[in-house]
């Protein structure tokens, strides 16, 4: 049992241990979809939704697995649940917002292989959070992901207008920006750290 308070868990997941900038989870969409703000925000929201669903499911599944003493199946069970949740989001988006569905493209099914989501499910299991704590943790992780991807998209939109040497075209300069963002987020470490 873990006795961390809910506000601590939330702030810790958003700032001090931001999933993208401190724990290096979910870098593919962070680098891939952060070109424009109006695709970055929906991507963040979709990821957050999948995080919430899979967090709840993972909590339930873990109880069953521990009860039956088959914890070695944890990884396989979690990934199947996450894949199903992503499928759900994909179908919903396709029905209600086809434009957005096309804009997100390949990155939508790739939420399945977003390590932030599996990482969240695994961390909440390791930390032995109860149901409410898990939910708040998922909410915090999702908010942190949206925050990071929005900051990055804003920076990259500005960058498009600036005059860069030809060598820095492409991913290298995004990574450098990520490094600077990560440095600035280290300032939040005093809030709680590990």
């Amino acid at each position: 049992m873990n006795y961390e308070s809910l506000s601590f868990i939330f702030l810790n997941a958003v700032l001090a241990n931001n999933f993208v900038l401190a724990l290096f989870l979910g870098l593919c969409p962070f680098l891939g979809v952060s070109g424009k703000l109006n695709t970055a925000v929906p991507m963040g929201l979709a990821t957050m939704f999948v995080m919430l669903v899979s967090s709840v499911c993972a909590y339930g599944i873990n109880i069953v697995l521990v009860g039956l003493d088959i914890e070695f199946l944890r990884l396989i069970a979690y990934i199947v649940v996450i894949a199903s949740a992503v499928q759900l989001v994909e179908m919903t988006l396709k029905k209600f917002s086809p434009g957005l569905f096309r804009a997100l493209g390949i990155f939508l099914p790739l939420i399945t292989t977003n390590c932030a989501i599996l990482g969240l499910a695994l961390f909440q299991t390791f930390k032995e959070y109860d149901f409410l704590q898990s939910l708040v943790y998922a909410l915090g992780a999702g908010t942190g992901f949206i925050l990071a991807i929005m900051l990055m998209a804003g920076l990259r939109e500005k960058l498009e207008l600036s005059n860069l040497p030809s060598v820095t075209q492409g991913a290298a300069v995004s990574l450098m920006l990520g490094g600077l963002l990560s440095l600035s987020f280290m300032g939040f470490a005093g809030l709680g750290g590990q």
Binding site: F24, V167, G170, A172, G178, G179
Partner: peptide, 22 residues
């Protein structure tokens, strides 16, 4: 060894390879 260093070192490697390629 902190997270920020990871981003910066990978960025630097990519810059180097891009420079070679060009």
């Amino acid at each position: 060894v902190l997270p920020a260093g990871g981003f910066i070192v990978l960025g630097a490697w990519l810059l180097l390879f891009e420079w070679f390629k060009q």
